[in-house]
Design a protein around this nucleic acid. Structure first.
Length: 270
DNA sequence: CGAACGACCTGCAGGC
DNA sequence: TGCCTGCAGGTCGTTC
């Protein structure tokens, strides 16, 4: 669920309900996420007004005057805005209750997500090492090309490396490479500047499209328990191993790159 | 230093 | 029906 577009969609979904709102209480039912939720997080948040909600990479930042909550959805995390209290289910780990009765509920079956507190987002170790945002003007083919010099790792692992560019997960790495016509396992250093320009363009386009389609999810954000289905119809290669390429009919190939499933077209991506 | 890989955890699908 | 295996959107920390 949470690729960058989903995180961005989540941000847009929760923002209108919590900005300018005061945190009344924080209920933690399960501290054991990727890192334990700090025990003093409730008292840090309580009484604070959410001034801004930001996204950095796949992290959501709930910013207050005294510090920020850092939230990551991991592989299976989800945020919901509840209008009224609803009994917590098995994986509903955290509720942030606001003065206007809105509840922000964090659900995460696999618990790879995180909820932390920091006084200073600029110096927080998790946020400090991050590479460029894909929608930042400095993210370009030239930028990728420069960073790829002498890099032997596969181009797919390269664009999934958060120190290079953030927010490109397994789905959209595969999709971007297909759109750019690049074979996922070739070494990053062997990609030409031309190809990198194509790739940077593809990444932006794919992510932008997905965010746009995430907008449909946004609509039923408040009441839906259902899964967003925005990506399924637009995916060209992800999850389609063995099926014919939409572009040329060749059966799509499945390989393993960096322990992640990777699907590509041997004919269209060369 | 870069690159590979294990680890974290639950749920689900598929094979037997 | 039940057990076992493998796989799933992420990414940090350790090891080679």
């Amino acid at each position: 669920m949470p690729e960058l577009p989903e995180v961005e969609t989540t941000l847009r979904g929760i923002e209108p309900y919590i900005i300018g709102n005061t945190v009344q209480a924080v209920v933690i039912r399960h501290y054991g996420l990727r890192w334990p939720i700090p025990h003093d997080l409730p008292e840090k948040l309580q009484g604070q007004v959410i001034q801004q909600v930001k996204r950095r990479a796949k992290y959501l930042l709930l910013e207050t005057q005294t510090g920020s909550a850092i939230l990551h959805l991991g592989m299976s995390g989800r945020l919901q805005v509840l209008n009224q209290a609803r009994s917590a289910q098995k994986h509903d780990h955290v509720d942030i209750q606001f003065a206007n009765q809105i509840i922000l509920r964090f659900t995460d079956p696999r618990r790879f997500g995180a909820l932390l507190w920091t006084e200073n987002t600029a110096t927080h170790p998790l946020l400090q090492q991050l590479g460029v945002e894909p929608f930042d003007p400095t993210f370009s083919g030239k930028y990728l090309w420069l960073r790829a010099q002498n890099k032997k790792i596969s181009i797919k692992s390269f664009i999934m490396d958060n120190k290079i560019v953030v927010g490109v997960g397994n789905i959209y790495a595969a999709e971007s490479l297909f759109l750019a016509g690049i074979t996922p396992m070739v070494p990053a250093q062997s990609i030409s500047l031309d190809q990198f320009q194509q790739l940077a363009k593809s990444i932006k386009l794919i992510l932008r499209q997905a965010i746009k389609q995430g907008g449909t999810t946004l609509k039923d954000f408040m009441n839906s328990e259902g899964k967003p289905g925005y990506f399924s119809q637009s995916l060209k290669v992800y999850g389609r191993a063995g099926l014919p390429c939409f572009q040329c009919g060749t059966l799509l190939t499945l390989v393993r790159i960096g322990q992640r499933s990777t699907v590509f077209c041997q004919r269209c991506q060369s």
